[in-house]
Design a binder for these strands. Structure first.
Length: 353
DNA sequence: GGTAGACCTGGACGC
DNA sequence: GCGTCCAGGTCTACC
């Protein structure tokens, strides 16, 4: 189990707290953080030369930036991973001094992002079913620190090209995010906006300044459903979605009933919740079906063939599908941990892949 | 249940 | 620099 025990591995640096976060034996920060496209979306930032993850977090006593490294890493952009780093602890530097509860909060949020609590038995089962990913150690998929952010990122990735998604997320943070208090230079200085903040934002602001287009009303509705009221309750309880005991079908049905969420988005949010049996089929799936799997026919026919191709992977279908596509991207653009957000983003358009 | 068209933005392209 | 076309998933109306 990962995590900094209270009082363990914690130091005060001149600018802020330093924590040590233990990780599972097979965890590699560069490989496992740069495993899903959201690692390129604000307020996440990956710095390839220093193999450092920067992230603005909204903590109990205000926003802070954390810098995360894995112990023993070498400087400079490297195409080949040093897998001997697997399992080495993470060094987390905060931009300010954190209280004890905030240290626990940082641990919890980073653990969700990096899937440090991923079920080891499930990972092993995935590798048995699809041995292609055992040796490279692929299995974890990066996600956001909160379910709400994952949902907003999914909605802003629908019906838009990837550079558009990058722009929407950057502007959501710039316009609605809470600012950090620090004179240091960071890639981002504002949090991802909370459900409370988006829920009380005007549609004209979302459309005009964040340029989310017709998604404005849908994002506000979603935010109001996840917004915690004064009595501490929300119309939608994130804990219910995150609870492993909640049946897959129940979650899927609720997701499909939410504004802005159709079959693709619902399946994608399911995988972000660690439920990998559904495939979020979209135009990328069709491209993959044609270019990599060699299928022919109309889009709908190719999509059906892609679904049938991954059906034997059962409850691990998404991971097999995703890493197959991800390796294809890496063949075109180099290893994901060498990608830069702004300059490499344009490559991730179906027509160019 | 299946299909068509509208919804927006940003990039590519032609002039 | 301007106008046009196109890509992208969801939603609604219609058959």
């Amino acid at each position: 189990m990962a995590g900094a025990r209270p009082g363990e591995g914690k130091r005060e640096n001149k600018g802020g707290s330093i924590l040590t976060l233990r990780v599972p034996n097979d965890f590699h920060l560069a490989r496992d953080y740069c495993s899903y496209g959201y690692f390129l979306l604000a307020p996440n930032h990956w710095d390839p030369p220093s193999s450092t993850l920067f992230r603005v977090l909204d903590l109990a006593q205000g926003p802070t930036v954390v810098r995360v490294n894995q112990a023993g890493l070498a400087q400079g952009v490297r195409r080949k991973l040093d897998l001997s780093l697997c399992g080495k602890p993470l060094r987390v530097r905060a931009s300010r001094t954190l209280s004890r509860p905030e240290q626990t909060q940082v641990k919890r949020l980073l653990s969700r992002m990096l899937r440090l609590d991923e079920d080891a038995a499930m990972l092993a089962a995935f590798h048995r079913l699809d041995p292609r990913w055992k040796r490279p150690g692929r299995g974890r998929l990066m996600r956001s620190p909160t379910l709400f952010e994952d949902i907003v990122k999914t909605v802003t990735s629908c019906n838009v090209t990837w550079p558009g998604t990058i722009g929407m997320n950057r502007r959501l943070c710039e316009v609605l995010g809470a600012p950090i208090r620090s004179n240091e230079r960071f890639p981002f200085r504002r949090t991802f906006p909370s459900a409370e903040k988006i829920g009380r934002t005007r549609a004209t602001t979302l459309r005009g300044r964040c340029r989310v287009g017709y998604r404005d009303g849908r994002l506000i509705e979603l935010a109001r459903l996840f917004r915690v009221s004064r009595n501490g309750e929300a119309a939608l309880d994130a804990g219910w979605f995150e609870n492993p005991g909640t049946p897959d079908d129940a979650i899927h049905d609720v997701l499909l009933s939410l504004p802005g969420i159709g079959p693709y988005a619902a399946a994608n949010i399911m995988q972000l919740l660690g439920r990998y049996d559904r495939l979020p089929l979209d135009s990328e799936s069709v491209r993959h079906g044609r270019d990599v799997l060699g299928y022919v026919g109309r889009d709908a026919q190719v999509m059906k063939k892609v679904a049938a191709h991954f059906e034997p992977f059962g409850e691990h279908a998404f991971r097999s599908y995703w890493f197959e596509m991800w390796v294809h991207y890496e063949k075109k653009a180099g290893p994901s941990w060498t990608w830069r957000r702004e300059t490499d983003a344009a490559q991730f358009i179906a027509s160019k892949l």
